[in-house]
Design a binder for these strands. Sequence first.
DNA 1: GAGCACTGC
Length: 872
Amino acid sequence: MPIPLPLDSAREEILAALAVNGSLVLSAPTGSGKSTRIPPMLLGEARGKVLVLEPRRLATRLVAARVAQEMGCPLGGPVGYQTRHEGRVGPDTRLLYLTQGLFLRMLLDDPRLDKVSALVLDEFHERHLDGDIALAMALRLRRTTRPDLAVVVMSATLDTETLSDYLDCPVVKTRGRAFPVEVRHIDAAEDRPPWEAAARAVREIVRAGESGDILVFMPGGYEIRRTVEAVRDLHLPEPLTAFPLHGEMPAEEQDRALAPATNRKVIVATNVAETSITIPGVRHVVDSGLARVARFDPRRGINMLTVQKISRASAEQRAGRAGRTEPGTCRRLWSLYDHQGRSEHETPEIGRVDLSQALLLLNALGVNDIGTFSWLIPPPDAAVRSARDLLASLGATAPDGDPADLDHRFPPPSGNLTELGRQMARVPAHPRLARLVLEGERRGCRDDAALVAALLSERTILRPGPRNPLAAASDDLSDLLARFSQAREHGFDDAFCQGRSLSASAARQVDRTWRQLRQTGQARHHRTARACTHGSADAGRPAGSASNRGLSPPFRSSLSPDPEPRTLPLCLLTAFPDHVAARSRPGSPVFNLTGGRRATLSRETLCTDCDLVLACEIAEIEGGSGLSTVLSLLVPLKPDDLLEMFCNRMGLSSELSWNRETQVVEQIESTRFFDLAIEETRGIPTDRTAAAALLARRIVAEGLHLSGFDDRVEAWVERLRFVATTFPEKGLPVFDDADRQRAIEALCGEDYRYAKVKDRPALEAVRSLLSPAHRRFVDEMAPERIQLPRGHRIRVSYPQGQRPTGRARIQDLYDLPSTPRIAGGRVPLLLEIAGPNNRPLQVTDDLANFWKVLYPQLRAQLQRRYPRHEWR
DNA sequence: GAGCACTGC
């Protein structure tokens, strides 16, 4: 017999509100029983299925089991659940618990949710990206084809006004059942490490004779280790046992921290203890008020992990952990004044993370204009731009319209999924990894590529601790693959893995994901989704139980002799074209990463001697010694690999004899762009105009083939300011708007109108100053730095032939003695493609149509010359 | 003062 809960009394109110509005926001604190009571309540009224979306797998399974038990039916009967790798769904399942992410996958197969009557979003206040998207899609359905779809949003926070405005529906609030927690603020000195204050607070609790276990919140593993040490050094009369607790720990060790102990426990935990894990016996919370938070920096395309002050809502949640079973206390290691200055909520995920996967999925769901999509809170523009750029560079989207009509490229369109993009959206992984899997399939190394994708998308299988080097592995990735295959050959045996500092559970997880990814997201995925919505013959059994044991598909180790040993690096290059790094100079530990970033190699890497690498992982870490960009999971590259990638992008064959060295050197040099430019600037005499012209030239040359242009202008101005203040003797300008205008005039001539760079994206501004023909020219020339086959050159010259230059790069245009006047779309320059022996192949004076007309001709010639080559 | 939070398909 179910225990009565406060929510049961709100039943009439909830059903009445839902009957009138079709949607509802339910505000009820954690522990009020909303996850278990509301969905069955809805099921009684619904004709079709009820879907309940949970943020976490664990909660999905546990809540479904609880509900099935309370309803007195087997799991997989009327009540079921489904997560990525396991589930209990039967033909009779009408109440289905599933993760938010799986729901979005389901929409790909069943966009109208035909058999679904009601949708419940549980724990919505956590504001995961998938939850925001799921809700927005539900709203869209209600507004279009499914006005009858009931939507209930459940949130633990009281701030529900935005939500009810968004859904245009009422809010029902209920009380919780928590015990009071006495909160004290302890003003710890901010410049002291948090573990010292935490240890003092623990001592205070013990000395005051307050009983009960203590839960300490720290931002990360490092702080946890220090706190555990500090607590051990307290030497209190009462024996304490301190346990670390964080997500990277193996499950057995986590269990040990949660299990009852003879001594009083001090559990030092990260945010895992805030929501995901409930710890019995805790009466006291000590809160550092800090958390490591992942953010995506769209300007640099980098994931950062920084220590931040938690919000007031998060502090409230942490304090609540002390009052689950009886009244408790919470000591906050920051002042009340600090507390009042903190933000109310954490930034929702949509405001901080990489959006490329979300964007790809939305495109595949037919949402082509992200700008007008009905977000609860729209994502930041810069993040959307960055995601679009990434999708385009991965080949998932294509610019619309006539490719030659480049004026329509700004702002870039969000839709226009390519066939490749459509396939990528079906692969349940980040777009980069989806591309990796598909490229692997195309190049005949599907299994290896899918395994790499699985290893990169799941938690690392490497545990801290000593590992014997594998003789056969020469780089990080093949080392990882070899270790995984060893673990797999031993059936992911716990003892075997432990002895080799591998996590058996993480490896099993990778194995499951690998099995899914190697199907490239099509056949199997259909089945899963069908099972969710329509039921299927093999449902009702834990999914994967048949395939996970015994029968194992042949595993081709990447260490086995490979007829095409460079295949995997080439696949990786399509997935991570911007993760290439070159050593800054021989022997230096500093690497230059594409886009002007600097980085160092991870300590664990095997590729210590490589000069050109691809980094599967790039992270910016805020550690004890400041901020550093660290490259890890490295694969050595050969210059030929880069060449191959360029050729692929150009649709040309690398078998032609190209001018390889030039290309590679150029690419590597472009990664050092900012440093070179600064050196140049330093050497310039005290001439403001010259400095401005240099800046403008660089802006155009750099900005047109890289994204995030406006930010680059700002970065550039910053750099110049830095140089100006560091080398005052050079008399360089402090760069202001007047200098900007001068720069643009130097670039374009004085009769062009000045557009304020700050107001609009700088690229737009500079481009708008150019005539249409000139604009097309720079657009087409600079982006890819198109190269010609060996012996062929592009020459730029005046009609009179005053100043022919070497290769036609955009800088060369601005190196001409005076800026060419442009009129009527005709450019008084001659462009010629010179063949071997300088024999001109083509000449034109129409720059606007140069690539449109000449490039296909050139390509046709090449095709005739190399007929046996396979042209793409 | 070793260099890393938590989810999820």
